[in-house]
Design a protein around this nucleic acid. Structure first.
Lengths: 116, 116
DNA sequence: TCGTTATATAATACATTGTTTATATAATGA
DNA sequence: TCATTATATAAACAATGTATTATATAACGA
């Protein structure tokens, strides 16, 4: 299983997510990806390398082309981690609900946007 | 819904994921979080700000403390995006399976680790 | 009110990342 | 074999992000 550092780091970049979204529509070569994204080919190649290293995409060789596609089990490991959070949320939420209600600080969570 | 850029960027950092994992065990104050992670308090504060801005955690005020906890719907928006990938994978995988099989390039994906 | 505790902010040093241009490599077709 | 197409790599650099120390602020307890 690919490591989470690489996976999330890869997904953290909007360009790479856009690339994945594009690949969700089907296989695409590097040039095909470079066009809609208004970036140079080397830039896309670099992003693809990041995605590949993270195990999010797979590449095959077809002549001089290297069509990319989404990696089947990429999402799985990410899901696993998120499942941990999900589970914790389910548990903590209820628990805290009581705690918070009991101290009058209920929905009053005091979240400061950025303050000053 | 929080934006994905912020969410994934926040999750991309191992320290922040560790903090979330810690928070999965229950609420914790800044100092409580700072201890196990062997970092200075300001560093943790900064990470918490990132997590809060990304909508991944909530903070409430309790005296001089500011206990943090996981945000209930944080995972949701991330899941939505991943669902898109998941769906695409389900669709593309089958489709490509045929394509690949039909051109002898099957499992031969040629993924270069880092080459040289 | 004063010292302490809990946390945030500022200034700064440093590492990482993303982009570009230029160039290399590798397969294709004439 | 030569020009072309598709992609990768290198070098350079700007932009970001992260960690640290020093300092500010705010609530608490004596």
């Amino acid at each position: 299983m690919p490591n989470l550092d690489a996976s999330f780091s890869a997904l953290a970049d909007p360009t790479r997510r856009a690339i994945l979204a594009r690949l969700a529509l089907g296989e695409a070569t590097v040039m095909e990806l470079a066009q809609p994204f208004e970036m140079t080919q080397p830039a896309v190649s670099r992003h693809l390398k990041v995605l590949a290293d993270a195990g999010l995409i797979l590449r095959r060789v077809e002549g001089t082309k290297r069509p990319c596609r989404l990696a089947p089990d990429a999402v799985a490991s990410i899901d696993e981690w998120l499942a941990m959070l999900r589970k914790a949320l389910a548990a903590n939420y209820d628990r805290l609900d009581g705690v918070l209600a009991g101290m009058g600080a209920k929905k009053h969570a005091t979240r400061r946007k950025d303050k000053r």
